[in-house]
C-alpha cells in the first residue's frame, strides 16, 4: 500500500495550485492581448474593389477630405463618395484605366460601388462625425494618417476606452479649426499653444459625454 503514492505526491496539491495560478495569469494576459479591439481591429485593411489610393489623391492631387467625404462636417455619417464624384475627374483623367472599370460601370448603371466598410461601431453606441470635426478634432485622431495610406487601414481601436480617453481630457488633442483636415498638422498643445486650446474648450463649452447615456442612447 505504502508504494502506491510516491513521496513526491505530497507536494502535488501545492504544485497544482501554483500551476492553476500560472495558467490563470497566462489566460488573462492572452484575453487582454488577443480579445480586445487593439488586436481584433487594428490593422484591418480589406482589399477594395478599386485600388483607390488616398496618398495619391490627397498628397499628390491635393484634394481636401471633404471633396469626397462631403457630409463629414454636416452630418453624423461621413459618406463614402458615390461613383459620380470619381467621374468628375475620371471622365477626363485616365478615362480608360482598367483600375477604374468598376467605377465606370456603377456610374453608368447607377449602382453603388461595392466598397468594403472598414470602421464600424456597434449599433448600441452612438457616434457623430460633425460634432467632432467641427470642434477641432482631426480625422487623424481616430483614423490615423489616412493621407499617407495606399490602402485604408484601421489604425485606432475605436473601443470604448479609446473614446473615453479623449472625452476625459480633450485639451491636448484639439487642433485649430483650420487644421482639422490637414492630417499632417500638429495639435495646439504640440505647437505650444495649450492656452489657446483651453480657450476653445471654454468658448465652445466643450463637454464630451462621459456618462453612459451620452453614447448609449
Amino acid at each position: 500500500m505504502s508504494k502506491l503514492f510516491p513521496k513526491s505526491a505530497n507536494k502535488l496539491p501545492l504544485q497544482i495550485v501554483i500551476y492553476v495560478g500560472v495558467l490563470a495569469g497566462i489566460a488573462t494576459a492572452g484575453v487582454t492581448y488577443y480579445m480586445t479591439p487593439k488586436y481584433t481591429r487594428v490593422g484591418y485593411a480589406p482589399v477594395q474593389p478599386v485600388p483607390f489610393s488616398h496618398a495619391q489623391h490627397v498628397q499628390e492631387v491635393g484634394l481636401d477630405c471633404r471633396y469626397c467625404h462631403s457630409n463629414v462636417d454636416k452630418s453624423g455619417h461621413s459618406n463614402v463618395p458615390a461613383a459620380q464624384t470619381c467621374m468628375n475627374c475620371h471622365g477626363t483623367i485616365k478615362p480608360n484605366s482598367p483600375a477604374l472599370a468598376v467605377v465606370r460601370e456603377s456610374f453608368e448603371k447607377n449602382t453603388p460601388v461595392p466598397w468594403v466598410w472598414i470602421h464600424k461601431t456597434p449599433d448600441f453606441a452612438f457616434f457623430n462625425h460633425a460634432i467632432h470635426v467641427n470642434r477641432g478634432i482631426s480625422c487623424v485622431e481616430c483614423h490615423g494618417p489616412v493621407n499617407q495610406m495606399e490602402t485604408v487601414t484601421h489604425m485606432q481601436p475605436l473601443s470604448m476606452a479609446f473614446c473615453l480617453d479623449c472625452h476625459r481630457d480633450p485639451a491636448p488633442r484639439l487642433r485649430a479649426p483650420g487644421d482639422v483636415y490637414n492630417l499632417d498638422s500638429r495639435t495646439l498643445a504640440d505647437q505650444g499653444r495649450a492656452d489657446e486650446a483651453q480657450n476653445y474648450i471654454h468658448d465652445w463649452k466643450l463637454m464630451p459625454p462621459q456618462s453612459c447615456s451620452g453614447c448609449h442612447r
Binding site: G30, Y33, Y34, M35, K38, Y39, T40, R41, V42, G43, Y44, A45, P46, V47, T153, H154
Partner: peptide, 19 residues
C-alpha cells in the same frame, strides 16, 4: 498560440474577429 495569432497591429485583410 503567439506564432499563430501574431502581434497586435499586423495588417490583415480578413474581416475582424468578433469576440
Amino acid at each position: 498560440v503567439v506564432s499563430l495569432l501574431g502581434l497586435r497591429g499586423t495588417r490583415f485583410t480578413a474581416p475582424p474577429l468578433d469576440v
